[in-house]
Design a protein around this nucleic acid. Structure first.
Length: 652
RNA sequence: GCCGAUGUAGCUCAGUUGGUUAGAGCUACUGAUUUGUAAUCAGUAGGUCGGGGGUUCGAGUCCCUCCAUCGGCUCCA
């Protein structure tokens, strides 16, 4: 007998060689029907694979990410089987589960495939699923594995086999399909009840542009038909939040082919929104010891040679602008840091002067491949809410904490609660990739980790993801469709101070090198606004809304009163306007709802007589009748609370 | 850039196997209606069917090409 320890610490005995499926059955039939895979001693395990020693066991169902991944991974194999039946001789690359489904990279040879073929592939997959074919695991020697794929003529699997160790290689077979695979898999194909192929894309073998491009087919499957329906509804809902759609509808920004790809044009309402964000941050930064600087949009090539950006990113920059007579070379500014370094250098500093915090809403331009452009989230010209802090090594941690405070302050004012903080450290196995002394790195990494812990951030640590010049902390947010984007970022940099030979005089009267911290709470205004739109579905926090209040007179007779109310609100800096159209109230309300006004004030005879307004919130909530002044104070208070000053928020 | 899909009025979409003057709703404009919590009625205007080339007696529809847009191109069997 072996001892099995469950997640709740309960221990039960089972015969040696029992399986997760047997154990699930011993608990309940329902569980057995839902269990997709298992974790045995922390390792993913097929439910049908014997367990031979005392183990901890976790049964994985659809409710766990690993359970989903197992179903999707098995689905990738199922799709491969379907594809092989239609396209004999098809070669397979990799077919992993991903967030939101799975894909398989295939080489169809002379055949090609399009979304028109999805239906028949889906049908075939469902047909194979209904056969409830078991996924069978088999250990094979490297020699046999190579032989198998040589016979099959699949060079991609052979390429993968090169990196695998003999004795560690397993095959999985279901129905007529056998694949090189680590597993685990679901017990049989019958667990897959609903199939939806999503899209088709080109993907280079091993992500390498110089290698052959394979056809990648994305799909998603579910253990229940109803889950597919829910998923489709969810996707439709997400599309409604798309910032590209809402940005157009709400007249925030637009693009023009004539102006150029990836170069957003901010419309008046969007520009005002941007300005509000900027002034909000400016105010907080001023209180936080930043000083503003302004630098030009182009910089001499030599500047970027010094910074190292020319060598590393030269090809991702817009090509040089030359002066006609002198032939000098300038680049459109791809980042602000080199300029800021030169500002730092404009005068000598004592250790007592540090930290120096230079802030600029700097517009930068980067060449992005045309296919990479995406609404406001990936553009070629954008404005960073950039700042560079020059500090002593002993100040790094404190400064880092202050920056985290600032980022959290910004996120709070915008109701951005769903973000993850990612700490990117260097790969200790590969120190050659990075510049700077071990001592400085250790200090900086420790400072970041401690700073994040002190602020109680939920963090994910990524080893090897640091920039070559220093570790960083990024704030990641997902868009409506679940794609991850980086917003705020805080980065420690030892490289630029070195390259620009930045100095300060220490208490020892010797020259020392400052440490630089790059930081941008929004990241870029463009991307930030995009994500903000998707997060609030266009219903901005009131202090940001392009128009905050619309006054709806019941008929023309109350127009003068409506205008009076409007003026009163405007005088208190509340953005209000009157719907003067001779429409019915119902119509005006509907239009105001569609246009996402946070507040609607209905005024008619009753209100006019009593100096009141009837308050309806966006979404339909009725706040009842209020005195005009009372409503004004209510709105002002709500705004104040939301954008409480930086010191207030950080006092506690 | 590469792979795949898409491109008809300001917006959302119809438009049979190629066949007369390309349609609808919303928006805009004009007029009537003076209205109490998600769409009042009527009329008018608006399109070189993404650009260019070709096949055809005839192209929004078929072919080629260019452009733009959308999805993807890191997540290592």
């Amino acid at each position: 007998m072996i001892k099995i320890t469950f997640p709740d610490k309960a221990v039960r005995e089972y015969p040696e060689g029992t399986t997760a499926m047997d154990i699930a059955k011993s608990i309940s039939e329902g569980l057995a029907r839902n269990v997709l895979s298992a974790k045995v001693n922390g390792k993913l395990w097929d439910t049908t694979r014997p367990i031979t020693e005392d183990s901890t066991l976790e049964l994985l169902t659809w409710d766990s990410p690993d359970g989903k991944a197992t179903l999707w991974h098995s689905s990738a194999h199922l799709m491969a089987e379907a594809l092989e039946s239609f396209y004999p001789g098809v070669k397979f690359g990799i077919g992993p589960p991903v967030e939101g489904g799975f894909y398989y990279d295939v080489d169809l040879g002379k055949n090609s495939i399009s979304s028109d073929d999805f239906k028949k592939i889906e049908d075939k997959m469902l047909e194979l699923a209904r056969q409830s074919n078991t996924y069978t695991r088999k250990e094979v020697s490297k020699r046999d594995a190579i032989k198998y794929f040589e016979e099959k003529g699949d060079e991609y699997k052979l390429d993968l086999l090169k990196d695998l160790e003999d004795g560690q290689i397993t095959f999985y077979t279901q129905g007529n399909f056998t694949d090189l695979c680590r597993g685990p898999h679901i017990p049989n194909t019958g667990y897959i009840k609903a199939v939806k192929l999503l899209n088709i894309a080109g993907a280079y073998w091993r992500g390498d542009e110089t290698k052959k491009q394979l056809t990648r087919i994305y799909g998603i499957t579910f253990p229940k038909q109803s889950l597919l329906q829910e998923y489709l509804v969810m996707v439709e809902e997400a599309k409604k939040r798309d910032h590209r759609k809402l940005g157009k509808e709400m007249e925030l920004f637009t693009f023009s082919e004539k102006v150029g790809l990836g170069l957003p044009l901010w419309l008046p309402k969007g520009a005002m929104l941007r300005e509000r964000l900027e002034s909000f941050l400016r105010k907080a930064q001023l209180k936080s010891g930043y000083v503003p600087v302004v630098t030009p949009h182009i910089g001499n090539k030599q500047l970027y040679v010094t910074s190292g950006h020319y060598e590393k990113y030269g090809k991702d920059s817009f090509q040089p602008i030359r002066t006609p007579a002198e032939g000098e070379e300038f680049f459109l500014k791809p980042m602000n840091c080199p300029h800021h370094c030169e500002i730092y250098k404009s005068k000598p500093y004592s250790y007592k002067d540090l930290p120096v915090r230079l802030a600029e809403f700097g517009t930068v331009y980067r060449y992005e491949q045309s296919g990479e452009l995406h609404g406001l989230t990936r553009v070629r010209g954008f404005t960073q809410d950039d700042a560079h802090l020059f500090c002593r090594p002993d100040q790094v941690k404190k400064e880092f904490i202050k920056v985290i405070d600032l980022v959290l302050y910004v996120f709070r004012a915008l109701d951005l609660t769903e973000f993850t903080a990612q700490i990117s450290l260097r790969d200790p196995e590969n120190k050659a990739k990075y510049i700077g002394s071990d001592e400085n790195w250790d200090k900086a990494e420790k400072a970041i980790i401690e700073a994040a812990a002190e602020k109680g951030l939920k963090t994910v640590v990524e080893i090897g993801e640091a920039a070559f010049y220093g570790p960083k902390l990024d704030f990641m947010v997902k868009d409506a469709l679940g794609r991850k984007w980086q917003l705020g970022t805080i980065q420690v940099d030892y490289n630029l101070p070195e390259r620009f030979e930045l100095e300060y005089t220490g208490s020892d009267n010797k020259k020392h090198r400052p440490v630089m911290i790059h930081r941008a709470p929004f990241g870029s205004l463009e991307r930030f606004v995009a994500l903000l739109i998707e997060h609030c579905a266009g219903n901005f926090p009131m202090w940001l809304a392009p128009e905050q209040v619309i006054i709806l007179p019941v008929s023309d007779h109350y127009m003068d009163y409506a205008k009076k109310v409007c003026t009163l609100l405007n005088n208190s800096d509340i953005r209000a306007l009157v719907d003067e159209r001779p429409e019915k109230v119902g119509r005006k309300i509907r239009d105001a709802e569609v246009k996402k006004f946070p507040f609607m004030l209905i005024v008619g005879e009753k209100e006019q007589e009593t100096g009141t307004v009837s308050v309806r919130k966006h979404g339909g909530e009725d706040l009842g009748v209020k005195k005009v002044e009372e409503f004004r104070d209510y709105v002002m208070k709500e705004i104040e609370e939301k954008i409480a000053s930086f010191e207030e928020v950080n006092a506690g």
